[in-house]
Amino acid sequence: MARCRPCPSTRPSCAPPAPGGWVFAPVPAEHAPEVAGPFGRVPVTATVDGRTWSTSAWRDRRDTPPPGRQTLDVSTEMTTSRSTTNGPGTRIEGETMSKPTTIDEYINTAPPAGRALLSELRTLSRDAVPDAVEQIKWGHPAYVHPDGVILFMFSGHKTHASLAFTPSTRAAFETELTGYRTGKGTIALPYDTTPPRPLLTKMIEFRVREHEQHGVNWM
């Protein structure tokens, strides 16, 4: 059975959702991703009842599911290895694609339309916090304070890049971000627009200060 939102019922088959829609399906433990957290999604190509679309899988931390009870999120893209059955008539499967282990690899495997912006975000980040360590955290580029605390991260998506700060950093620039789509601590930057470099630099500098002077750690 596949479970769809916003409909709470289950049904024996499910087509790919409309843009922004969701479909949830449990994945047995032997095929589940070995990751967790908000950036811990594993990209997959899902095939359900013969219909295929790009999505991602991750460990569900909203409750304490039984062993192997995982979710599929039909909102992201690309592929990794997963192959499992999910009840009569339903099959979820994918093909292998290695995860990036460096930021160079991450940018090179990002959507072509976004590589220039992601490279620019990397340059901006290096200029703003030259002492930060570049790492891949939960599959995405992160800038880590020398004491080991994550300062901020960025990620590439189908049509935009996302820069992730702490909620307190994002909130401090509320009025300056009115023209952008934002989340709890994130800012979406469309690939076809010029990023607000001075604003992003100020946000990075604020994030460093709030950590070093006020002890604000990562989420």
Results as ranks from 00 to 15, higher is better:
residue 1 M to S: 03
residue 1 M to G: 02
residue 2 A to I: 15
residue 3 R to C: 02
residue 5 R to G: 05
residue 7 C to A: 06
residue 12 P to D: 05
residue 17 P to D: 02
residue 21 G to F: 12
residue 25 A to M: 14
residue 25 A to D: 10
residue 27 V to F: 01
residue 28 P to N: 01
residue 29 A to R: 15
residue 29 A to Y: 15
residue 30 E to G: 05
residue 31 H to G: 06
residue 38 P to Y: 13
residue 39 F to A: 04
residue 40 G to Y: 04
residue 40 G to V: 00
residue 41 R to N: 11
residue 46 A to G: 07
residue 47 T to V: 02
residue 47 T to G: 07
residue 48 V to K: 11
residue 48 V to C: 05
residue 49 D to M: 09
residue 50 G to C: 11
residue 54 S to D: 11
residue 54 S to Y: 14
residue 56 S to F: 03
residue 56 S to Y: 09
residue 56 S to W: 02
residue 60 D to A: 06
residue 62 R to V: 05
residue 66 P to Q: 12
residue 67 P to R: 08
residue 68 G to D: 05
residue 69 R to Y: 04
residue 72 L to K: 10
residue 74 V to D: 08
residue 74 V to A: 10
residue 74 V to G: 03
residue 77 E to Q: 15
residue 77 E to G: 07
residue 78 M to R: 15
residue 80 T to Q: 08
residue 81 S to I: 13
residue 82 R to I: 06
residue 88 P to W: 11
residue 90 T to K: 13
residue 91 R to I: 08
residue 100 P to A: 02
residue 103 I to H: 09
residue 107 I to M: 04
residue 108 N to R: 15
residue 108 N to P: 09
residue 111 P to C: 02
residue 112 P to S: 09
residue 112 P to F: 02
residue 113 A to Y: 08
residue 114 G to E: 00
residue 114 G to Y: 09
residue 117 L to Q: 13
residue 119 S to D: 05
residue 120 E to R: 15
residue 120 E to L: 14
residue 123 T to E: 13
residue 123 T to M: 13
residue 124 L to K: 08
residue 124 L to C: 00
residue 125 S to M: 00
residue 126 R to G: 03
residue 127 D to G: 02
residue 128 A to R: 14
residue 134 E to Q: 11
residue 135 Q to E: 08
residue 136 I to Q: 08
residue 137 K to G: 00
residue 138 W to M: 00
residue 141 P to F: 06
residue 142 A to T: 05
residue 147 D to F: 11
residue 148 G to T: 10
residue 149 V to Y: 11
residue 149 V to E: 10
residue 151 L to K: 13
residue 152 F to S: 01
residue 155 S to K: 14
residue 157 H to L: 01
residue 157 H to Y: 06
residue 158 K to T: 02
residue 159 T to W: 11
residue 159 T to P: 11
residue 160 H to T: 05
residue 160 H to D: 03
residue 161 A to R: 12
residue 162 S to G: 03
residue 162 S to T: 15
residue 163 L to S: 03
residue 163 L to E: 03
residue 166 T to I: 08
residue 166 T to S: 08
residue 169 T to Q: 03
residue 170 R to H: 01
residue 170 R to D: 00
residue 171 A to I: 10
residue 172 A to E: 04
residue 173 F to I: 02
residue 174 E to T: 14
residue 174 E to W: 09
residue 179 G to D: 10
residue 179 G to Q: 13
residue 182 T to D: 06
residue 183 G to P: 08
residue 184 K to V: 00
residue 184 K to T: 01
residue 186 T to D: 02
residue 188 A to I: 14
residue 189 L to D: 05
residue 191 Y to H: 04
residue 193 T to C: 05
residue 193 T to E: 01
residue 193 T to V: 01
residue 195 P to E: 05
residue 195 P to F: 00
residue 196 P to S: 01
residue 196 P to T: 06
residue 197 R to Y: 06
residue 198 P to G: 03
residue 201 T to Q: 09
residue 204 I to M: 03
residue 204 I to G: 00
residue 205 E to D: 12
residue 206 F to K: 14
residue 210 E to I: 12
residue 211 H to V: 03
residue 212 E to Y: 12
residue 214 H to G: 01
residue 214 H to L: 03
residue 217 N to I: 15
residue 217 N to G: 09
residue 218 W to M: 04
residue 219 M to W: 15
